[in-house]
């Protein structure tokens, strides 16, 4: 016990990673494709006996060797990961775990946000995190029919505008959530501003930030980074569970989205919403994409036009407010990044 120690396992350390994978496999867990940091605890013989990893603001992929359970090793692993996250300025942390293990994490200061099918539990280390977010939202609850839209708007196109207009016309209040995670080409402040300008003519729209709760790297990392279909689907289900709780607070009865012919991840997300939301009494409305001269408008296509400097096509796909920003000096750093990027299309 006293001779054990915790160290980082680097991605290139095939022997170390093989030991980590073996530990995870016994717990029925597959190591996530996207991890920032992995550590393992070793016994005096250099064998890995416990492991844990981080990605963004989450802790993930924990396991303890069967021979060492009940020794409090996971507490040490979690401490190590929290210290590592603190070192890079992350204090609000999230994790998912099996329902059976959730009470253990509750003892380590983690609080439940949502669970999927009674199996997977999503937790955060703030007692007042999600409840505080819901309380803030509750202040914008309105009587009458409410609907919701969630968009990344990277950047805001005529497609987003049409979606907002149609959804807004269908209800008394439209709660429009903007993905706040800064992992997209256009920074959050810009995306939010363009949504604000592009929906200014719709008086019943209330804008919200998704925070770490909807489509964030905590709930839905595969939205931002490539992953396998079953992983995307699992995360989409969790995201939808979180959304159900938000919808209940805002009295939202319908969620609107654009049809998704091109992006695999958003297509899967829409499918999960169509399956899951009606179970909670929320209507899922998918509207066809707006087209311009035969091609569907999507933010991915807009980004491709920007990369190629095709402003003639671009003008047909974005509202004047977005165009003004894109042709202004302020957009230059983002455009430079786009021009250098290999892939600008959402997978």
């Amino acid at each position: 016990m006293s001779d054990s120690w915790i160290g980082q396992i680097y991605p290139g350390d095939t022997r170390g990673m093989a030991m980590v994978d073996a530990l995870l496999e016994k717990e029925g867990i597959r190591r996530d494709g996207n991890l920032d940091y992995t550590c393992a605890m070793f016994d005096e013989n250099g064998q890995a006996i416990a492991t844990g990893s981080c990605f963004g603001n989450t802790l993930r992929c924990f396991a303890v060797s069967g021979a060492h359970q009940g020794e409090g090793l996971l507490n040490q692993v979690i401490t190590h990961l929290i210290d590592w996250q603190a070192g890079r300025g992350q204090f609000h942390l999230f994790l998912y775990t099996k329902a059976g293990t959730a009470p253990f994490f509750a003892d380590l200061g983690f609080h439940e946000i949502a669970r999927v099918d009674g199996k997977l539990v999503f937790m955060e280390n703030r007692r007042n995190g999600f409840p505080g977010y819901l309380k803030q939202l509750e202040a914008t609850r309105r009587d009458g029919v409410s609907a919701a839209v969630v968009m990344n708007a990277n950047p805001f196109t005529l497609g987003h505008q049409a979606l907002a207009e149609q959804a807004s016309a269908s209800c008394d209040t439209l709660h429009l959530f903007i993905v706040s995670e800064d992992r997209s080409f256009f920074p959050f402040s810009v995306r939010r501003k363009l949504v604000e300008l592009g929906t200014a003519h719709l008086p019943n729209v209330v804008l919200h930030d998704c925070g770490p709760y909807i489509i964030s790297s905590a709930t839905f990392p595969s939205y931002f980074l490539k992953d396998e279909t079953d992983v995307i689907e699992g995360q989409a289900r969790l995201d939808v569970e979180v959304f159900k709780r938000i919808a209940a607070v805002l009295n939202v009865r319908a969620r609107w989205a654009g049809e998704e012919p091109t992006s695999r991840v958003t297509g899967l997300y829409n499918r999960v919403m169509a399956e899951e939301l009606p179970k909670a009494g929320i209507r899922f409305v998918e509207i066809p994409r707006v087209q311009t001269s035969g091609t569907v408008i999507s933010a991915s296509t807009v980004r491709a036009c920007l990369r190629d400097g095709d402003f003639t096509e671009l003008k047909k796909m974005v509202p004047p407010s977005t165009l003004a920003y894109l042709t202004g000096a302020e957009a230059e750093p983002v455009l430079k990044k786009l021009r250098q990027a290999e892939n600008v299309v959402h997978y």
Binding site: G72, N75, Q76, I78, T79, I82, D83, A86, G109
Partner: peptide
């Protein structure tokens, strides 16, 4: 700024302070 001290091991505590 936020800071952490301590551990989650038995007989210890983990303290986080933030503005």
């Amino acid at each position: 700024k936020p800071a952490v001290a301590g551990t989650l091991e038995s007989s210890d505590c983990m303290v986080t302070v933030e503005p």
